[in-house]
Simulated assay, not measured.
Amino acid sequence: MPEREETSPATPGHQRPPGKEQLETATTVFALMADPTRLYLLWLLSRGEADVTELAASTEAARPAVSQHLAKLRLAGLVQARKDGRRMVYSLRDGHLRRLVTEALSHADHQVTGESWHA
């Protein structure tokens, strides 16, 4: 069976034109992703769960700064947290965000490397 190029949204509910609320919500997501540290945190979480200590070490950012970024992402509903003993473990809320982060960074990689574009 040939591979199907994914050009349509995953579910029929996503095929309707966006309303004002959807556009405003999407704009908020893009605004939060516009910060390099937050985008990197989202990319790290797209690879799996992590706690603040792991994320701070990976980003080389101060733990309080990472905590503040995570609080913003959590407040916006982009990440979720669960308690594991004394630590909070963070993860992405859904696959849409995971794909959005991956696609944004893949697009940037093409621009930075000059690699040819693909459909």
Rank of each mutant, 00 (worst) to 15 (best):
T11F: 11
L44C: 07
L105M: 13
S116Y: 08
H96Y: 14
E5R: 10
R38W: 04
L32P: 10
E21S: 06
S116T: 14
L44V: 02
L73C: 07
A65T: 11
L97T: 09
A10Y: 13
A119L: 07
A26T: 14
A65Y: 02
V101S: 09
A119F: 02
S91M: 03
G114D: 11
L75D: 13
S46E: 10
L23I: 15
L44I: 01
L70N: 05
P12G: 04
A10K: 11
G13Y: 07
V66L: 01
A10S: 13
K83E: 15
M33T: 03
V101Q: 12
A76G: 09
R4P: 03
L100M: 13
Q68L: 07
L70S: 05
M1V: 15
S106I: 06
H96C: 04
A34V: 00
Q22W: 00
T53R: 05
H96W: 12
E24H: 07
L41I: 14
H110P: 08
Y40V: 02
R82Q: 12
A62T: 00
L105E: 07
T27E: 14
R47W: 03
V89G: 12
L75K: 09
T7V: 08
D109A: 12
R16P: 07
G19R: 06
E6K: 02
H118G: 15
T113M: 10
A57H: 09
E103R: 04
E115A: 15
E103N: 07
V52S: 06
T28H: 07
V66E: 01
L39Q: 02
W117T: 15
P17D: 15
T25A: 11
L70G: 09
H110N: 10
T25P: 00
D94L: 06
Q15G: 10
E5C: 05
T59V: 03
H107C: 11
P64L: 11
G95D: 11
A57I: 00
A104W: 01
A50D: 05
A61M: 01
S8H: 10
L97A: 09
R63M: 08
E49T: 09
T53A: 12
E60V: 05
L78D: 01
V101Y: 08
T102E: 13
V112D: 14
R16M: 09
T53F: 11
V52R: 03
L32D: 07
A108I: 15
R82G: 06
D109Y: 12
S106V: 08
H14K: 06
E103H: 04
L105S: 05
Q68V: 05
M1L: 14
L39H: 00
D109E: 10
W43P: 01
H96L: 14
S67N: 06
L97C: 04
G48H: 02
A26H: 12
T28N: 12
A61E: 13
T59R: 02
R38S: 15
R98W: 12
A76T: 11
Q15E: 15
D51I: 00
E54Y: 01
A62M: 06
T28I: 03
G114T: 08
L41G: 07
G95Q: 06
T37D: 03
Q15L: 14
A34P: 08
A76L: 00
T59I: 08
